[in-house]
Amino acid sequence: MPTIIHLEEIVPGMVLGEPILNRYGQTLLTPGVVIEEKHLLMFKTWGIKHITIEGSTPRADAGEVSEDLKNLARKHIQKRLLWQDLNPMEEDLFNASVERVIDIYSSSDLENDDD
């Protein structure tokens, strides 16, 4: 599933999902190109703010979620639970919820960036 990401999130090694065009509609980079360090500078020069990459949730995949963000998500969920001592299934559900809340935080960050 292709994902649109912000310039600051681009990490070398990501694969371009859609072509990058210049203002005249000419193709600068084609889908399938593996992003290298040199491309980052090119994007800045061209004034490109977003690109589409192959794959999904780059933040989670890249393992770059900070411990702070994780703790924030954990606390957010914990304070809503009316019980403690989670069994293994509940622990698993809790972990899935942490992932989900981080995703929600991240996507609202992105919206703010665009403002």
């Binding site: 999904s56 299934m89 698993d92 972990n95 919820s97 992932e99 989900r100």
Partner: peptide, 13 residues
């Protein structure tokens, strides 16, 4: 085991 962490992507989509 790990039902929710494995299916979170499918469920969210």
């Amino acid at each position: 085991p790990h039902f929710f962490t494995k299916s979170i992507g499918v469920l969210t989509a």
